[in-house]
Write a protein that binds this DNA or RNA. Structure first.
Lengths: 222, 222
DNA sequence: TCAGATGCTACACGCGTGTGTAGTCACTCG
DNA sequence: CGAGTGACTACACACGCGTGTAGCATCTGA
């Protein structure tokens, strides 16, 4: 039916409901959020929510789908606006979390929004490809693995927004906070926090070899 | 009453309930988890849960408190076992998430477990203090800010366990996965991913100065 | 021996929830 | 005009949930 575009349907009740749902799901979580509350925020009856989306879970699916669409749009914008020497991760993080920060956080932690994470891994891998080019020693682990970790790290501040904000003293997404964060991240990404010797030493202390049984799990007593 | 120790009460029904609660809260989330289900796992009646903890929320509080106790114990162990040249972050992450990975993840994302995060910031700051000593250029941002980001990053893989595992191809907490992760992290922490020039360039592209209004928030249209 | 805790269970209540149903209004098309 | 269709509402139902209450064993100490 209305598979049309993204803009023209934004004032429809359906879009308002979706928007309200992302707000409520993000703020209170899926379970705690109520269809009635969403309907109220959207200015419609609770029945209409069901009429348009069928069920609460289907509504969440629609939110997830919308998130992916929003991401791919943002992704294109970022790609054209990226710094020549590497993707501006701060910008990416700020953009990915957009108006939907809380919703995305919950979705990611609950294991959903896989497309978002995978896209971020892809971006991270591209970045690493450039970095690896100008590198003397060959990386020990695959680029994919490092990209996965990099993607997770890029999201970490957003996921732990409240805690980071508390430690920072200002909201991480406020102008002051994001500036502080950006500079902290630049510092982190531009300085090695382990010397090659330390890294080698720690590597040597790693649990035996892959495949060894749990060796560090002596007891979790209580 | 039974403020006794931590070990001697581990076989009591109260401890079993707490343990079952952390399992259920972690697996299904606080709202979706039911007192009846927790009671069944603990092998007791649902009434006993209320008898011991008063309410579902109080039960969660007890779980949080137990988590903090577990952390401080782990913290002591790690501190004595830490590598001389820096804290083994991989070990820390693996230890902090112990048997309570999922529970901790949810608690952190929901803004609880502040003590855990703050403790991690503290550890991170200690580590940075050592790193800063052997550093030529002075860091631009406070150690606290960098520690906050570092703590968030140390937790990121645990928070996004499912996604990272999917990108890795193996469970991030399996022996193979944690080994792979450790080596990826060591690579990340021991190599700068931005050259000083690139960092300077990106820093120059940062939004004006702290305190400037939103400049990058043109529109979030729909 | 007998009160009084204490650990624990069984059962019922009330409420909020997602969902189902019936119906109204408006607009379209033949 | 009139049937049809989709947006939308009001209302009721059934269910699962946290919570409350009453009661039963078991142990302890005066």
């Amino acid at each position: 039916m209305d598979m049309a575009g993204q803009d023209p349907e934004d004032f429809t009740a359906r879009a308002r409901i979706r928007e309200a749902a992302m707000l409520h799901f993000g703020e209170h979580g899926f379970d705690r959020a109520t269809v009635r509350g969403i309907a109220e925020t959207a200015g419609v009856s609770s029945g209409l929510v069901r009429h348009h989306f069928g069920s609460k879970e289907a509504l969440r699916d629609a939110c997830d789908a919308h998130l992916v669409r929003a991401l791919s749009r943002i992704n294109d914008e970022v790609r054209t606006d990226a710094a020549p020497g590497g993707v501006n991760y701060v910008g990416v993080a700020g953009a990915v979390f957009g108006p939907y920060q809380r919703y995305l956080s919950r979705a990611l932690v609950e294991g959903r929004a896989t497309a978002v994470f995978d896209k971020l891994v892809e971006l991270s891998a591209q970045w690493l490809a450039e970095v690896d080019r100008g590198r003397a020693d060959p990386p020990e682990v695959s680029r994919q693995a490092r990209a996965a970790v990099g993607a997770a790290m890029a999201l970490s501040v957003g996921l732990l927004r409240d805690h980071v904000s508390r430690a920072l003293g200002v909201d991480a997404f406020s102008p002051e906070g994001s500036d502080l964060l950006a500079r902290a991240l630049l510092d982190l990404y531009s300085h090695p926090y382990l010397s090659p010797e330390e890294a080698a030493a720690l590597r040597a202390r790693l649990p035996r070899v892959p495949g060894s049984p749990d060796q560090d799990e002596k007891d979790h007593d209580d």
